[in-house]
Simulated assay, not measured.
Amino acid sequence: MQAFFSFARTLGLSLLLGGASLAALAGDGHDHGEAPAAPSGPAMPRFAATSDLFELVGVLDGAQLSLYLDHSADNRPVADAQLELDLGGKPLALTRVAEGEFRATLAAPPPEGEIPVTATVVAGDESDLLAATLDVHATDAHTDPAAPPWRRAWAWGAGAAAAVLALGWALRRARTATPAKAGGAA
Score class of each variant (00 low, 15 high):
87 L>A: 02
107 A>H: 03
121 V>M: 00
112 E>V: 14
90 K>D: 15
159 G>F: 08
135 D>V: 13
172 R>N: 12
72 S>A: 15
37 A>G: 04
161 A>Q: 01
157 G>S: 15
4 F>Y: 11
162 A>I: 09
182 A>W: 05
105 T>I: 07
28 D>Y: 01
71 H>T: 12
116 P>K: 04
5 F>G: 10
13 L>V: 10
59 V>F: 04
176 T>C: 05
122 V>Y: 00
145 P>L: 00
75 N>T: 13
136 V>D: 06
134 L>D: 03
136 V>C: 04
1 M>N: 05
3 A>P: 11
59 V>R: 08
56 L>R: 02
102 F>P: 14
150 W>E: 08
93 A>P: 04
23 A>V: 07
116 P>L: 04
179 P>T: 10
41 G>K: 05
92 L>F: 02
177 A>K: 09
181 K>N: 07
109 P>F: 02
78 V>I: 02
161 A>G: 02
29 G>I: 01
138 A>S: 08
13 L>H: 01
172 R>Q: 14
104 A>P: 06
45 P>E: 05
99 E>P: 10
18 G>M: 07
179 P>M: 06
49 A>Q: 01
63 A>F: 01
172 R>Y: 05
38 A>V: 12
66 S>C: 00
50 T>M: 10
176 T>M: 09
1 M>C: 07
186 A>T: 14
120 T>W: 11
63 A>L: 08
165 L>V: 05
125 D>T: 08
175 R>Q: 15
177 A>W: 05
6 S>D: 15
172 R>P: 06
117 V>D: 05
6 S>I: 13
167 L>A: 12
14 S>W: 10
98 A>S: 15
33 G>S: 07
104 A>D: 08
85 L>H: 03
7 F>H: 06
35 A>H: 09
36 P>T: 07
8 A>T: 10
84 E>S: 14
32 H>K: 08
139 T>F: 09
12 G>E: 01
165 L>N: 05
133 T>N: 06
36 P>H: 01
165 L>T: 03
164 V>Q: 03
27 G>E: 08
40 S>D: 14
161 A>E: 01
151 R>V: 12
174 A>C: 00
77 P>C: 02
